[in-house]
Amino acid sequence: MSTAAGLRHDLLWQKVTIAIPYVWLLVYFLAPFAIILKISLADPVIAQPPFTPFFDSQGDITATSDNYSFLLTDKLYAVTYLKSVFMALVATLLCLALGFPMAYGIARADESTRNLLLLLIVLPFWISFLLRVYAWMGLLNNYGVINNVLMWLNVIDKPIAFMYTDFAIYVGLVYSYLPFMVLPLYATLERMDLDLVEAAQDLGARPSQAFWDVTWPLARPGVIAGCLLVFIPAMGEYVIPYLLGGPESLLIGRVLFDEFFVNRDWPLASAVAIVLLLILVVPIVFLQRSQARDAEGHA
């Protein structure tokens, strides 16, 4: 076989290797967004499928911005978006407050304990998300474990209504997304040169000053990555507000789900999704940038 033919042959398999996943993602990841955008501009009808086609029988475009103007005028949606952002933010900060000292402690543990502690952070990832949320139902119930223990200890004489409150949602969010916070924080803290903290102390910084002058600014990439990894999925969360939150806890993921399955208003659900996506585009791009920078830093 001549070298030229050999090279062409080599290029062919490279092309195939790229093309298969590329086409798959174009069809099953990118195209759906075009469709969602299209349907968000349609009117709902009682039919199968329940929306007007993009082109009518004359071939004219039948786009309408009704869904978006409805989203903007109906106060319920604005409030829901804002509340989702707020709750996701609070959950993110709670994760950070709990996750940072944990990641710090793990990064500074000796090596064999460190691996075990890390494993215990990762392990819940592998156990069903749904069942982990479910576990809290048994704890937070009016007749659940926490109330039983508190009453047995005579701290309270009536059960506290934990379930179906925002508190329960926060517990669920922090519980589910804590590992997403701890892992990137751990990665940056573990890489950090401990000499730097000692150098700061040697130059006259008390331990708390050394933390804020050196450890915290150097951990920033991990803090940013962790916060985004918690905030983004928390924004669209459906299971946690459904199972732990009350019927009033209208978070946007749940509204989208209900709009689609309960009201069967596909165009409006699509519009809700598009607006949610617009809110999340900035943090998502930010996250991808920081991860790309991180990957370069390693190379």
Partner: peptide, 15 residues
């Protein structure tokens, strides 16, 4: 941080 002593680290430990 209270000692009248300063150190130059092997890694230099420059911030």
């Amino acid at each position: 941080y209270e000692r009248p002593v300063n150190m130059m680290f092997q890694s230099y430990a420059i911030f």
